[in-house]
Design a protein around this nucleic acid. Structure first.
Lengths: 371, 371
DNA sequence: ATGAAAGCGCTAACAC
DNA sequence: GTGTTAGCGCTTTCAT
C-alpha cells in the first residue's frame, strides 16, 4: 500500500507538506506542489480513509437512513437515495446506507462510532423514536419529511427538514379541479398503514385537500387504498355508489395509478370526459401512465439534493436552517377536463345503483370483453 | 468521547484486555470480562470505526455498487439493496452505497482508500469496464448477475457471481406453456437499451426461451419493450397482427405487466381463456397483479442475501466459489391455461389468421374454451 | 514556505 | 489470563 510517507520520500519532502498539498490548508510553492503531485500520480497514492478519519475526526461519509416500511412507494425512495448519493459524491462524500430496522440504535451507532459525519433520515413518523437521539446527537441531521402535522412545529424542535409542501400540493389539486367545475372529488390515498403510522406527508396532503375543498365548495371523499388492482377497484366502485356525483379523483398512491386507469377503462368511464384524474406522484410516473396525468410532481431528486446540500453546508459551519418546504408544481396533462355538465353525460348516471353497466364513451371497443 | 483507554481505567485493567473482550480473540476470566462489560455499558463506550480500521485494516463495511441505469426495474434493485443491507448488518457489516456513475474509478477508490472490505457489484454488463479493476483488486467482490452470455465463463475469470438461472427460467416458461398446448408464444422483453448494453440476464433468458421453444416445437417472437402503456400496446398489437396464432405471452419486464393486462382487457382478450401470460418478475408483483400471474420469481432478497454471505465467507478466509445460479421456481397462478383449441374460440380468430396448429396435448382443460 | 513530532483510538505481537 | 508496547497512516500544532 502506498502511504503518505512513501509520497513524501519520493518527492523529497516531509509528510506534512504532502498532507498540506492534499488539503490545501497552507500555501505551497508551485514547484514543490507540482513535484508532489507528480509523485502522487506516479505512485498511485490514495489517502487511507480510516487513518484520515482518526486524525481529523471527519469521515467524509453521510449516513442515509431509509426505513422502507410497508406501503411506501419504492421508486421515490430509490430516486431520493440515488440523488443523495450522486449529490454527496459531487461534494466529496460517500453515503452509508442504513435501514430503519435498527431504529434509534442506528443513530447512536453512527454517533458513537464516528461512522459518518452527518445523517439524512427518511420516512419520519410523528412520534419517531429516532428524533430524540437525533436532537441529542452532536452530528447534524436533516430529515426528508416533517415529523409534524403542520409545517411550523418542526424547527422549534431544532431539526432541519426538507420536504415537498404537501399541504399546498393537496390544495393545488382541488383548486385545479374546482376551476374545471368539479364539485364531487374522491381521494385515493396511501395505504391505511401509512396513515396509521402517522407519516406526516399523507396527513398534510389531506389537510390541504380538505381546506381547499371547503373553500371551493367541493365535496371530498377520502379512501386509503393498497396499491393493488383489487383494492383500487373496491374503493372506486364504492365511491361511485355512495356518491354518483363524483366526477374527479385525486390519487396519492403511485402504485394505484395504473390499476385505477385500467379500472376506469374497464368500467367504461372515459378520462377525462367522464372523470378527471389528478395524481400526486413523480413526474415520470405521470408522463408514462397509460393516460398522461395531470399531476403535482413529487420532486424526489430535488429533495435528495437539497438534503445533502444542507448537510454539507452545516458541516462547513452553517447554522441549521429549519424547515424548507418545496412549493408544489401542478402540470396539467391529458387526464383532467371540465366536469361533465349533466347527469346524462356520465357513465355512472346510467346506473340505478350498484354497478356500472353500460354505455360509455366514445371509445373504440371491440372483442368480447364487454361487460 | 469515550475511548477504550477510558474503559480500561474505569475497569482497572489494561487497554489490550478491553480490546480482547471486545474481539473475543483471547480468553478472559469471567470476573474481569464482566467488570469490563459493566464499564463499557456504564460509560456508553463505542469503538471508533476509523481507529479500528487503521489498526486492523478492516472497516466492517461492504460497498454496494448499484448503477441504476435506464430501463432497469427499480423495485428489484431496491429489494436487493435492502436485503444486502439487512443481511450485512446481521453479520456486523455496514453498507456503503455507490452509484455506477463513477464506474471503474469507484472500484479503485474503494480499494485504494480502504473504504470498504469488499464489494458487491450489480448490473454487470458483458464488457463491463469495472471487471478488470475488480480482478486486480485485493478485496473480494461478488457480482449480482453474470458478465457472460453463458453460465460457465464467469468463474474462469476469477469472479464470484450470484444470479438467478435466467436461462432455465426462460426454459421453464416455455415448458409450462408447451405443456398447456400453446404453440405460438410471444416474449415481451426488457427495454431495448437493456439488450443493447449487453446486460447478461436478458440475453440468457432469451437463450433459454429459444432453446426450449425449439425443443417443444413452439414458435417464438421476441419484442423488447419500454415499460409504458403505449409501447406495450404497440408491440402486442403488432404481434397479434403478425401472427394471429399467438396464444401466450411471456413478459420479462415488470413495468410492462400492468399495462399489458390492461391492454388485453381493453382488447377483449380474456386471460387465460384467450391468451395465457407468464411473467418473470418478483413474486410480489405476480401476486398483486390485476390477474394473479403464473410466474418465475426473481428472488431479489435471496440474491442479496447470498451475495453478502459469500462475501462474508470470503472475508473469513474462504476461497472464491465461482458462479452460483439460483434455480428458477415457476408458480402457476390464474394467468395461464390451456391453449384455445380452435380458431372459433379466440378473439384473435376474427382476424385473418393463417395458422393455428391443430393438435394439442393431453391436458386437463376447462374454462370456456371447451370444444 | 517547509519540517519535526506529537498524537488520534485501536490492535496485536510480545512479554510474563 | 493479563499487561506492555509498538505501530496503523494521517493531521496539525509548534518550530524555523
Amino acid at each position: 500500500m502506498v502511504t503518505l510517507a512513501d509520497v513524501a520520500r519520493h518527492a523529497g519532502v516531509s509528510a506534512s507538506t504532502v498532507s498540506y498539498v492534499l488539503s490545501g490548508k497552507r500555501s505551497i510553492s508551485a514547484p514543490t506542489r507540482e513535484r508532489i503531485q507528480h509523485s502522487i500520480d506516479t505512485l498511485g497514492y490514495r489517502p487511507h480513509a480510516g487513518a484520515r478519519a482518526l486524525a481529523s475526526s471527519r469521515t467524509d461519509v453521510l449516513a442515509l437512513m431509509m426505513p422502507l416500511r410497508t406501503g411506501l412507494y419504492v421508486p421515490v425512495m430509490m430516486e431520493i437515495a440515488m440523488s443523495v448519493t450522486t449529490t454527496a459524491r459531487s461534494h466529496g462524500y460517500d453515503v452509508l446506507l442504513l435501514t430503519g430496522e435498527e431504529g434509534p440504535e442506528a443513530v447512536r451507532r453512527v454517533e458513537g462510532s464516528a461512522i459518518a459525519d452527518a445523517m439524512i433520515v427518511m420516512d419520519v413518523g410523528l412520534d419517531d423514536p429516532r428524533l430524540p437521539c437525533l436532537q441529542e446527537a452532536e452530528r447534524p441531521a436533516v430529515l426528508i419529511g416533517l415529523p409534524t402535522e403542520t409545517a411550523e412545529a418542526a424547527d422549534t424542535a431544532g431539526l432541519d427538514c426538507v420536504d415537498l409542501d404537501f399541504e399546498s400540493a393537496g390544495a393545488r389539486c382541488v383548486e385545479h379541479l374546482a376551476g374545471l367545475g368539479h364539485t364531487g372529488v374522491a381521494v385515493l390515498g396511501e395505504p391505511p398503514a401509512v396513515y396509521e403510522r402517522g407519516t406526516g406527508f399523507a396527513a398534510r396532503t389531506l389537510t390541504g385537500l380538505r381546506a381547499a375543498a371547503a373553500t371551493h365548495g367541493v365535496g371530498l371523499l377520502h379512501r386509503p387504498v393498497d396499491g393493488t388492482y383489487a383494492a383500487v377497484a373496491a374503493a372506486v366502485t364504492r365511491v361511485f355508489e355512495e356518491r354518483p356525483g363524483t366526477t374527479a379523483l385525486v390519487v396519492q398512491n403511485e402504485a394505484a395509478v395504473e390499476p385505477l386507469l385500467a379500472l376506469l377503462r374497464h368500467q367504461g368511464r372515459a378520462v377525462p370526459e367522464d372523470v378527471s384524474v389528478v395524481a400526486i406522484c413523480p413526474d415520470q410516473v405521470a408522463v408514462h401512465a397509460s393516460v398522461p396525468l395531470t399531476a403535482v410532481a413529487v420532486p424526489a431528486r430535488e429533495m435528495g439534493r437539497r438534503a445533502v446540500e444542507r448537510l454539507v453546508g452545516r458541516l462547513a459551519g452553517e447554522a441549521p436552517r429549519g424547515t424548507e418546504l418545496i412549493p408544489p408544481l401542478l402540470t396539467a396533462r391529458a387526464s383532467t377536463g371540465p366536469a361533465p355538465s349533466g347527469p346524462a353525460s356520465t357513465a355512472g348516471s346510467a346506473l340505478p345503483g350498484p354497478r356500472v353497466s353500460v354505455s360509455a364513451p366514445t371509445e373504440d371497443r371491440r372483442g368480447r370483453g364487454g361487460h
